[in-house]
Design a protein around this nucleic acid. Structure first.
Lengths: 171, 171
DNA sequence: CGGGCTTGGTTCAAGTTTGAAACAAACTTA
DNA sequence: TAAGTTTGTTTCAAACTTGAACCAAGCCCG
């Protein structure tokens, strides 16, 4: 099939998105690195933990909430643990499992960093958008996220499909 | 000043954006890594070069177009040069300068990768959006990018302002 | 029970990113 | 014109990311 290239409007949107999202992430990373000594992702991990019941979560769940690989999370948690912001606990019910728990210090670092972070997000994003644009932003990225999550679910479920029926034809 | 927290709508939009943009970049990186052996950023660098007059650009210009630091670009170009996709040339008019030129091989790698890349961008983003949303996407991120670029310009211009007038008071 | 597959997590090497420092050429100005 | 500053780029070490490989512990079924 011959490629359907992007229309001029799509091109413009795509370029604006690439530029804007990259500058935005940079700005947020810089602010958090300055004021809290950690990149945005690490802050988000702490934030996700802080909202979990009892402020603790299995590694896999935390990775899913944070939309990152387990491997990346392992590295991040190791760092945050060294900093004393997270504690690792074994999972009693499943001895394979490991639980990340936000420490009191982690919570207070998070609380101290939050105002500056929100201020940056406002200054760079929300204070520049109309309410309608805020709604559109949500719709657009919910759609994208939803689609990509489904796809991921489907692709891991179907993994190597020809293996799932011991090679015999459908019947 | 007491923090203006995000409204519930803003919260939802922000979370959707964080999740969606991160999954989107991952998907695009994976596709390009698979099919072209390079991450999205490197592809964009080649694309930016391909559009420049004579397919060559000063490092700093290329870094600006790509919205990345010079340091990051140096690393990327070094890699792409090893792969034979870019050639470095000295700048005749300014001996400090260095020019990145897209090689023929670089151009053809780019051309071969383009269809798959566009297909992914379509499948994950544009084929899921209404024309109105495409327009909004452009407006939102143009606004953000514009603001952050201005800010950057302003901050580098004003650098250490108390030094610019040999310390004497305004008069 | 006892293989064999799946799941939860970590480890490892290779690749990338970051920000500060280093360099060198160009510019400015006394 | 020499000293000092700015500009263009690279270098370096430390931090982070990636994906594949690995190691256990649970699960399943004959």
């Amino acid at each position: 099939m011959t490629t359907r290239w992007l229309t001029p409007e799509e091109q413009r949107a795509w370029r604006a998105y690439i530029a804007g999202s990259s500058l935005l992430e940079d700005a947020i990373d810089r602010q958090l690195q300055q004021d809290a000594g950690m990149p945005h992702l690490y802050y988000s991990i702490l934030a996700n933990l802080s909202e979990a019941p009892d402020r603790r979560l299995r590694m896999t769940e935390l990775a899913e909430k944070s939309k990152i690989t387990r491997s990346r999370l392992t590295y991040a948690v190791t760092r945050l643990e060294k900093d004393g912001l997270i504690a690792r606990e074994g999972c009693p019910s499943d001895k394979r499992g490991s639980i990340a728990a936000l420490t009191d210090e982690g919570m207070s670092v998070l609380e101290r960093a939050a105002p500056g972070h929100v201020a940056t997000v406002r200054a760079t994003l929300f204070d520049r958008l109309t309410p309608r644009q805020v709604r559109q932003l949500e719709e657009i990225f919910s759609e994208v996220a939803g689609a990509l999550e489904d796809e991921e679910a489907r692709s891991t479920a179907d993994e190597v499909p020809w293996r799932r029926r011991s090679g015999r034809p459908c019947s």
